[in-house]
């Protein structure tokens, strides 16, 4: 419930954005120069989805139950 925690939570968002941006640019260039590389592209997509689901969608909260509430 304090500023420090909030800054940390926001920092996670920034880190994930940087990762996503880097991977998207990587994808784009693979698509430009090696469009038959479907497996790496899918791997990147899975990794992107993993970060979004874990850090933006907070999938952990679904399994947290009644006790552990709030704030990641």
């Amino acid at each position: 419930m304090n500023e420090e925690q909030k800054t940390m939570a926001l920092q996670v968002g920034v880190t994930v954005l940087i990762l996503l941006a880097a991977m998207t640019i990587g994808e784009y260039f693979i698509g430009l120069f090696a469009p038959y590389w479907w497996a790496p592209l899918m791997a990147i997509a899975l990794l992107k989805a993993f970060y979004i689901v874990r850090d933006y969608m907070h999938i952990g909260r679904v399994f947290a139950g009644d006790e552990a509430e709030e704030h990641s």
Binding site: E27, Y28, I30, G31, P35, Y36, W38, L41, M42, I44, A45
Partner: peptide, 9 residues
């Protein structure tokens, strides 16, 4: 995005 834009020609 990769399925429509990137994979294949």
């Amino acid at each position: 995005y990769p399925a429509l834009y990137l994979i294949g020609l």
